[in-house]
């Protein structure tokens, strides 16, 4: 599954929010085509970790390398890098004043300077892939949460990214809509997309991840294949965490 040099490398990353040490000496590498699921109790720094990869959160020390290049500072170069990393948010963040079609084509047209017709064609194909092609002309508020999140995934895919970051993509969804979003993510994973997924969906972690990262208190505590992690967690923190979420 992993080929060549890793796509995403974090080396000794530290980040503070004021006095709070949210990322404590975190090192991690994600290979091309690899699916890494990040789990951990809330406040453990997993969302922050995800957001540092496209520099939505700047870090205090350490280095982050994407596709062989260190993350650039704010500016054109960073914008270009972000265009190559898709991001899906917990709260969808679809542009509220634009239709689904406009949401999906904005990046390709304005960032990549694609012809609108070309962008629309690919957008329709992507919306079809996530199962909401018939919603293309609606506004985000007219869609269900699950549909909005699938539209957000299509919007990120429209940039033809090298990797996708998912920051708790199903946490804001009603239970019956979680499945439809996870289905889309599972199919992406099967197609070889490089993915970093912060989630509480242990089922997804079990069947779609290549590796599970367990974080607690800003530290990366465990890094193991899912079967191994769920069967034999090594750290007390992970055992404790799993016992709390898997008993119900």
């Amino acid at each position: 599954m992993t080929t060549g040099e890793p796509l995403i490398v974090l080396d000794a990353v530290d980040k503070w929010f004021g006095p709070l040490h949210v990322l404590d000496d975190v090192s991690l590498s994600v290979g091309r085509g690899e699916v890494v699921v990040v789990i951990g109790p809330s406040g453990s720094g997993k969302s922050t970790l995800c957001r540092t990869i496209n520099r939505l959160e700047p870090i205090n020390s350490g280095t982050i390398t994407f596709d062989g290049q260190p993350l650039p500072a704010e500016g054109k170069a960073l914008a270009k890098l972000r265009s190559e990393v898709g991001m899906v948010f917990q709260s969808f963040n679809l542009f509220a004043h634009k239709t689904i079609m406009e949401n999906v084509t904005l990046g390709p047209i304005k960032v990549r300077r694609e012809k609108p017709a070309v962008a629309r064609e690919r957008a329709l194909a992507l919306l079809d892939r996530v199962g909401i092609a018939n919603q293309a002309d609606k506004f985000p508020a007219q869609l269900s949460g699950g549909q909005q999140q699938r539209a957000a995934i299509a919007r990120a895919l429209a940039m033809q990214p090298k990797a996708m970051l998912f920051d708790e993509p199903t946490s804001a969804l009603d239970p019956e809509m979680v499945g439809e979003v996870l289905d889309v993510m599972t199919s992406l994973a099967r197609d070889g997309m490089t993915m970093v997924v912060v989630t509480h969906e242990m089922g997804f972690a079990r069947h779609a991840a290549n590796r599970v990262i367990f974080m607690a208190d800003g530290q990366l505590v465990e890094d193991a294949p899912p079967a191994e992690f769920f069967a034999n967690p090594r750290s007390e923190r992970a055992k404790d965490f799993l016992s709390k979420i898997l008993t119900h």
């Binding site: 972000r82 265009s83 991001m87 948010f89 709260s91 963040n93 509220a96 904005l106 990046g107 940039m159």
Partner: peptide, 26 residues
């Protein structure tokens, strides 16, 4: 909502594009 500008940034829109196409119209 800050998520709007964040989503725009994560797509690779520059500061000016972000204002023009996402933030100011709202």
């Amino acid at each position: 909502p800050p998520g709007q500008a964040e989503a725009a940034r994560s797509l690779g829109l520059t500061f000016g594009q972000n204002l023009r196409y996402v933030v100011l119209p709202q």
